[in-house]
Design a protein around this nucleic acid. Structure first.
Length: 590
RNA sequence: GGGGGUGUAGCUCAGCCUGGUUAGAGCGCCAGCCUGUCACGCUGGAAGUCGCGGGUUCAACUCCCGUCGCUCCCGCCA
């Protein structure tokens, strides 16, 4: 190995290298032994190249190659040659050339592989994670990691070019039990005290504005001890930003530039800007979601006024109890069977809906449904017209509290979009959701809580309502949505201690408790804090969506399972009694 | 915490509904043959605690109860 100097990467070789003596290193991806000639596909992170060992030309070398097995790491010396036309492999980029070996060295052999590196089958997630190093060897995963790197580089370039300064903030920080559950780290030095891992660098980036950094960014790891999903991990990475002397439009403009730049440099796509803007209220009404998928129409509408005179008891009672009746037209859904409808109904029960009413629209002025008898012909006509429904469509109804109606019809809309292929999976549709409410009522804790977070500024025109009617106050917050997934969110913050204290009071955080938890921020705000705001983009989700994947685990090198474990390292794990004693922790026996 | 799917050879799966020979297939692995393959081919071989525990039964991969892992969703995620 001493004299070896790698000259090329496998996938970079091309016709321009013909006649060159090259030195390569990588893994044996595939070995095809023809008896007198052995073909070895050598793979490194750049791709693969066919290496040829001919018994007639070099018997000793051929014999050495005979011992190579799949996934051995090897180095190869040889000459690049053009393949004869009948032996060209059009399926791989280097298929027009091959390397005629003059030397091969086995650098390492392999144990029995738990799975084939290039197999086409879907692999069990646990096996992949246990042998993640082998999983990452798979070209698809390797290219995911390389794509993510490109995305990060594009973001850094753009932000650096726009005058942003990358600043690191602490990972060991203070627990602020507002928001999601913290990961806690016990202090050895201070008995009974704990650090928390940051849910986001929120307060540090605000304080950096008070310092005068003006434009901050960081690729920040964020930790949240909540249950996992395909697009949620206990730790994820945000492209985190904050700017001084800005308002909503400044942030939006900057992010649209960042996104456009990322798409151009990674996928070579031009994303049109400005992105569509939609209010929270409209999103909830028309799409039943605060992260609407705008790649297709199929809008929900409130038909409470139309059906107010119906004899249908379910609708009647819901309306008289202050609920709503909302309708969604399912294009071409008239072919759904009774069984399909039952399945949809039980699917919607997930979202709290007690039932799903449906009316099939037939030719002429005919309708078909178990409940059609409760509706006068005039009303049916009106429903059909207002929903712009055609024969073959189905009118779906959910009658319930506003929230349940939104959630369930929003979910139904996505389901129908998928089942009926209404979604163009090729497009990237960005939008901004604006005018979020500032507060929401937490029934469990009997108090108001911040929809975004407690540092978000209310709209200035709503300031009078903070104490009197908090639910009507809108926030200067904005979410970035891509194809129905929230990929970013942020707000203009309060830069004034008085206003911050007022908001704390509405949230039920009294002065002394505010002082205890956020006193450092309140104090800092007193020292000429500039107006400021920011946003964070979910890097993992963005990478996932750009690569059209279904899980962020596929763009994270070492993700956790749904139970937040790591099958490779075996974390989390128990620790020695001695370690526990040092941090003053005694386990409860449950 | 709740609902759905799933667990059988190293990997991907069939078998289970309707209990009954020795639990199969493809890929991989091992050995042999093969001088233009590229999902190489051909011949032969090894390989199983049917996730785990309990129950029903003459008999359980199969039925029942419990439990655990993986996964998708609801709750949760300021």
């Amino acid at each position: 190995m001493a004299k070896f100097k790698r000259t090329h990467h496998c996938g970079m070789l091309s016709l321009t290298n013909i006649g060159k003596q090259v030195q390569l290193a990588g893994w044996a991806a595939s070995i095809r032994d023809q008896g007198g000639v052995i073909f070895l596909d050598l793979r490194d992170r750049s791709g693969r190249i066919q290496v040829v060992f001919n018994k007639e030309k070099n018997e000793k070398l051929h014999e050495k190659a005979n011992h190579v097995r799949a996934e051995y790491s090897v180095r190869v010396e040889g000459t690049v040659e053009k393949r004869s036309p009948d032996t060209v492999n059009p399926k791989i980029p280097t298929g027009e050339i091959e390397v005629i070996a003059t030397e091969i060295e086995i650098l390492n052999t392999t144990a029995m592989l738990p799975f084939q590196i290039e197999c086409q089958d879907e692999l069990n997630e646990e096996v992949r994670l246990k042998y993640r190093y082998l999983d990452l060897r798979r070209p698809e995963m390797m290219s995911n990691l390389m794509f993510r790197h490109k995305l990060v580089q594009a973001a850094r370039e753009y932000l650096d070019g726009s005058g942003f300064i990358e600043v690191e903030t602490p990972v060991l920080t203070k627990s602020t039990p507002e928001g999601s559950r913290d990961y806690l780290v016990p202090s050895r030095v201070h008995e009974g005290c704990f650090y928390a891992l940051p849910q986001s660098p929120q307060l540090f980036k605000q304080i950096l504005q008070i310092s005068g950094i003006e434009k901050y960014y960081q690729l920040a790891r964020c930790f949240r001890d909540e249950d996992l999903r395909a697009d949620r991990q206990p730790e994820h990475t945000q492209i985190d930003m904050e700017m001084s002397f800005v308002d909503v439009d400044d942030i939006i403009e900057m992010i649209e530039g960042l996104i456009r730049s990322i798409f151009k440099k990674t996928l070579n796509l031009d994303i049109p800007a400005p992105f569509k803007r939609i209010t929270y209220e409209e999103a909830m009404l028309k799409y039943g979601s605060d992260k609407p998928d705008l790649r297709f129409g199929c809008e929900i509408m409130d038909v409470s006024p139309i059906v107010s005179q119906t004899d249908f008891n379910v609708f009647k009672e819901t309306l008289s109890n202050g609920g709503v009746v909302r309708m969604l037209v399912g294009p071409g859904c008239a072919d759904f069977s009774i069984k399909d409808m039952d399945e949809l109904t039980s699917f919607l029960k997930n979202f709290g809906a007690k039932g799903l009413a449906w009316i099939k629209v037939l030719e002429g002025e005919e309708f078909k449904s178990p409940i059609v008898k409760f509706f006068k012909p005039e009303m049916l006509k009106q429903l059909k017209q207002s929903g712009n429904a055609k024969a073959g469509d189905v009118l779906f109804f959910v009658a319930d509290h506003v929230n349940v109606a939104c959630d369930s019809l929003g979910a139904l809309r996505l389901k129908i979009g998928n089942v009926k292929n209404l979604i163009n999976k090729e497009t990237f549709h960005f939008s901004w959701v604006l005018d979020f409410p500032m507060f929401e009522w937490n029934e469990e804790e009997k108090r108001y809580q911040a929809v975004h977070h407690p540092f978000t500024s209310p709209r200035l025109e709503d300031l009078d309502k903070i104490e009197t009617s908090p639910l009507e106050v809108k926030a200067r917050a904005y979410d970035l949505v891509l194809n129905g997934t929230e990929v970013g969110g942020g707000s203009i913050r309060m830069h004034n201690e008085d206003m911050q204290s007022r908001v704390f009071r509405v949230l039920g955080i009294d002065a002394s408790s505010a002082q205890e938890r956020f006193g450092f921020l309140l104090t800092a705000l007193k020292f000429g804090a500039p107006p400021h705001g920011g946003i964070a983009i979910g890097l993992d989700r963005l990478a996932m969506l750009l690569l059209r994947l279904n899980s962020i685990r596929d763009v994270i090198a070492f993700p956790k399972t749904q139970k937040a474990t790591c099958p490779m390292t075996g974390s989390p794990s128990t620790v020695d009694e001695k370690q526990l004693r040092e941090i003053h922790i005694k386990l409860r026996r449950e």
